[in-house]
Design a binder for these strands. Structure first.
Lengths: 165, 165
DNA sequence: AAGCTATGAATGAAGG
DNA sequence: CCTTCATTCATAGCTT
C-alpha cells in the first residue's frame, strides 16, 4: 500500500476531502475484505459439509486476539474481573440488524421482535430486550446524526428541520 | 455501498468531499468486514486445529467485545484515510464550557445546546454533538470522581490551564 | 520509543 | 418515542 498523507494534522479541520486515490484505496480495501470473506465462507461451508458436525454451533463468538493491550484494564482505574453484563452484538448480528433497519422496519412489533431475536440467537446470545433497545437506539442515533451535518456539503437528501421546545 | 461515480465528463476537476457521517459509514463497513474475517479465520483455525487438542479455550462464557478494529487488515496496515480528527476544544471554548457547567446546567436541552454551539463557534470549529458529548462526559466524569475513594481531594477546575491551538 | 493519562466519542440500557 | 446515564473504545498529548 502506498499511503499518500497530505498531512493536514496540526491544523484546523474544516472539511474532509478525499482524493481519488484515497477513495480508491478504500474501495480496494473493502473489496479485499469482501473477497476474503467470500472465500472463507465458501471454504468453511465445504469443510463443515465434510465434517458434518464439527461442533461449531454458535461458536462464532469465540475469539481472542491480542493485537493491542487495551482489552479492559487500560484506563479508568476500575478493573472488572467479573464479566460484563452488557450485551455486545456480534458482527453477524449487527449485519442482520442493520439490514433489517435499512429495509424500513420502523417499529418492530412485539411479535417481530420475537422473530428477530430468535434468528439472531443463532449467531450469539441475545434477548428480546436487546433487540428492542437496539432498534430504539438505532433510530434515535440516526436522527441525531442528521442534526450535525448541514454546514458542509449538501447532497440531494437529508435536509431535515427539527423543532425544539 | 455507495460506489463513487466515475469521472463525469472529464473536463472539470471536482474534489470529493465526504461528510463525517459518510466517512463513518465507510469505517463501519470496513469494520464489519474486518470482524467477519477475523471470526472466520479464527473459526477456521480452531477447526483445523481440532486434531491438535484445540480445546484450550474451554470456557463457554467467552464474550466478545471490542470489535472496533477498523483498518486492521491482515498486515496490510496503514489505511487511515484521513484519520479521524477528534474535536479539541480551544482554551476559550473550554473556559466557557466550564463556566456553564459550574453554573449548574446539568442538562442543557437541545435548544440550549444549539445556543452554546453557536456561541462557541465564534471561538473555533465546533458542532452540537461536541457540546453534547462534552457535557455528558463532564458530568459522568464528575460523578465518577466523587464516587471513587474520597481519600484525596482532586481539584478538577485546573483543566483550563492547558493550551491548545 | 513506549506507556500512561485525560478525554472525545460510541453505544447499550434505563427512565420518563 | 425521547432523554439521560454508565461503560467502554480510541486517541492526543504528556511523562518516563
Amino acid at each position: 500500500m502506498e499511503p499518500p498523507p497530505p498531512d493536514e494534522g496540526g491544523e484546523m479541520m474544516f472539511v474532509k476531502v478525499m482524493t481519488d486515490e484515497q477513495i480508491e484505496i478504500l474501495r480496494k480495501q473493502i473489496s479485499v475484505y469482501a473477497a476474503i470473506c467470500e472465500q472463507l465462507v465458501d471454504l468453511h461451508k465445504s469443510m463443515t459439509d465434510l465434517a458434518a458436525g464439527g461442533g461449531v454451533g454458535g461458536g462464532l463468538s469465540n475469539h481472542h486476539h491480542h493485537h493491542h493491550l487495551y482489552c479492559d484494564a487500560s484506563s479508568g482505574g476500575a478493573h472488572k474481573i467479573s464479566g460484563r453484563q452488557r450485551w455486545n452484538p456480534t458482527p453477524k448480528q449487527l449485519q442482520i440488524l442493520e439490514q433489517m433497519f435499512d429495509q424500513g422496519i420502523g417499529t418492530p412489533s412485539k411479535q417481530k421482535i420475537k422473530e428477530i431475536t430468535l434468528e439472531l440467537c443463532q449467531h450469539g446470545q441475545i434477548s428480546e430486550t436487546n433487540v428492542y433497545n437496539w432498534f430504539q437506539n438505532r433510530r434515535a442515533r440516526s436522527k441525531r446524526k442528521q442534526q450535525q451535518v448541514g454546514v458542509m456539503n449538501k447532497d440531494e437528501s437529508d435536509v431535515e428541520s427539527q423543532n425544539q421546545a
